[in-house]
Structures are given as C-alpha cells and as structure tokens.
C-alpha cells in the first residue's frame, strides 16, 4: 500500500486524510480540504480502507477506531 508503509507507519498525505475524517466526507470534499488531487485521495482511501483505518458509508468516508489510534 502506498500510503501505509510496510512497518505500519503512514505517509504525511495519509495522515492528512485521517485528520479530516472525524466527520464523514466524500473523496471530493477531502480533495478540496487537503488540496490534493482527487485521484490520489481515491487511491489513499482504498489503501486506508484495506488497512481498516477508514470505513465507507453511503459514499462518504469516516475514520475508524483503528485510524484514531494511529493518529493519536
């Protein structure tokens, strides 16, 4: 996974995504807030979902307990 290193640490852009996901947001909203291209946000969300750090609910993404642990 690109935004999650093999040792479990996160890239800066992945952390930036997690930090804005305490409230559920669409990829488009995240892209605007963190000023990153939409394709990168979509790719990172896929990785973070696989790592159980975010979950998708009806097209919006929100941080999970696992994700909160990583950024706390």
């Amino acid at each position: 996974m690109a935004c999650v290193n093999p040792d479990g640490t996160l890239s800066e852009s992945a952390k930036a995504i997690l930090l804005v996901l305490k409230e559920a947001k669409t990829p488009e909203e995240i892209s605007r807030i963190i000023d990153q291209p939409l394709f990168k946000v979509r790719s990172a969300l896929r990785d973070l979902t696989t790592a159980n750090m975010v979950q998708e609910i009806q097209g919006k993404f929100q941080i999970t307990e696992e994700g909160l642990k990583v950024i706390s």
């Binding site: 996974m1 394709f39 990168k40 979509r42 790719s43």
Partner: peptide, 13 residues
Amino acid sequence: THGTLRLEDYKGS
C-alpha cells in the same frame, strides 16, 4: 510512483 492507481481513480477529470 504515487502508489497503486486505477484508471477509475481519474473519473471526472
């Protein structure tokens, strides 16, 4: 070089 990307990640642009 920016991680695993799919063509569908570019939908809308």
